[in-house]
Design a protein around this nucleic acid. Structure first.
Lengths: 208, 208
DNA sequence: TCTTACCTGTATCAAAAGGTACAGGTTTAA
DNA sequence: TTAAACCTGTACCTTTTGATACAGGTAAGA
């Protein structure tokens, strides 16, 4: 199964003529680990769809970062999507966390197809909806939850998505997900350990 | 000019057949000040479009609130929009701040039309895009800015949208916009006054 | 007029989060 | 094997934010 077939299947693209167009203008690209897909303040020329791998999308300040979301197979970064509808600079950064295969579509087709093909329309609409709700959820968390709660939520959701109770991230990496500093994470993790919620090892956190 | 005409004009709806459909299924409703349009955890049956007036959309916890956005003429609440695409409970509250005239469209048509009519498609897509970017902006602010900065930003943007340097809100109301408590707002405003940034009167803040 | 509800200012204390500093562990690659 | 880069733990202090409490002002309606 080619990358395109995977794409068609995942997005439910059954229209033959759309498939042909995608085959014609889409570009399959293998992006090595830790490469930037988008950088804050730069223009977006392609819509990138992740076929395999994982892309981290975040925002940053001078000295802090905060995670927005991960793009997993087979999804797209909603912000490139949004950017494709109007020529503008990216508000975020996106970087591969593993070797990642993407399909790139030039932005001009994205809008066109969304009115022409039902499946493409569904894809774009759903991307917006789910991303919006996801961001809304993060916003609420940020507004109302203390850091310890947010950290625990993060660990639990990591554990769940990776099907393992071991989380292999440094305190520094966690700080950049949550939007705080390393020391704060270390302190809270230590409290968690004393409360019997986790086991701490070097670069490894076990959820109990 | 009827409410519908205003709607057609604002959303650039030129297709005659869509206009007819909207006239047929749309309902014009005058909602008094301080009425709920949507409540958290309740199902959404209509897409509401604000023709005149103002609707506040927020999230709340047990004891706190935080503003999401205002819906002004002629826009819609993106969250009702998102909800119309999939049957689900509302994640937010929406309440009129003034007497407000809305046009209600039953949810089932919203999706249908978005594929059938270019103008409607643009409307829904643009709503998603702008709302997403707006929320993203708020998220970044919340993550990286202290309360004083956020308060000042809020005051300045209020002043700008209302074309006046006087903001007639109580400290309590401000606290609910920013997501903090009244005392914190009072303290910061007092600092602002000492720094010569504002003048404080009863229920009135003048930006200098 | 009086009551009631809401508004503002402020002092004090407590908790949450961040900054600085340092000691020592682990990994990697030269 | 050694240096460099990164990791963890922790102590101490500061700033930010929140909670509690109280005094007194303002507005609106009975």
């Amino acid at each position: 199964m080619t990358e395109f077939d995977q794409l068609f299947k995942a997005l439910n693209i059954t229209e033959k003529s759309l498939q042909e167009k995608i085959l014609k203008v889409g570009i399959v690209q293998t992006v090595p680990k830790n490469s930037f897909i988008i950088e804050q303040e730069r223009y977006i020329k392609w819509l990138a769809l992740v076929i395999t791998g994982k892309v981290r999308v975040w925002q940053e300040n001078e000295d802090r970062q905060i995670l927005l979301y991960y793009v997993n197979p087979v999804h797209t970064c909603v912000l490139s999507l949004s950017a494709t509808f109007r020529d503008c600079k990216s508000l975020v950064n996106a970087k591969t966390e593993e070797e990642t295969i993407i399909v790139k579509i030039p932005v001009r087709y994205v809008t066109e197809w969304s009115f022409e093909y039902k499946s493409w329309n569904n894809f774009t609409t759903n991307s917006f909806i789910f991303s919006y709700e996801d961001l809304l959820h993060s916003y609420k968390n940020l507004a109302f939850s203390k850091i310890d709660k947010r950290l625990l939520d993060y660990l639990q959701s990591e554990s769940k998505t990776n099907q393992t109770s071991f989380i292999n991230l440094s305190h520094n990496q966690l700080a950049k997900e949550i939007g705080t500093t390393r020391e704060v994470i270390s302190k809270i993790l230590k409290q968690f350990e004393l409360s019997g919620i986790v086991n701490l090892k070097f670069k490894e956190i076990e959820l109990l």
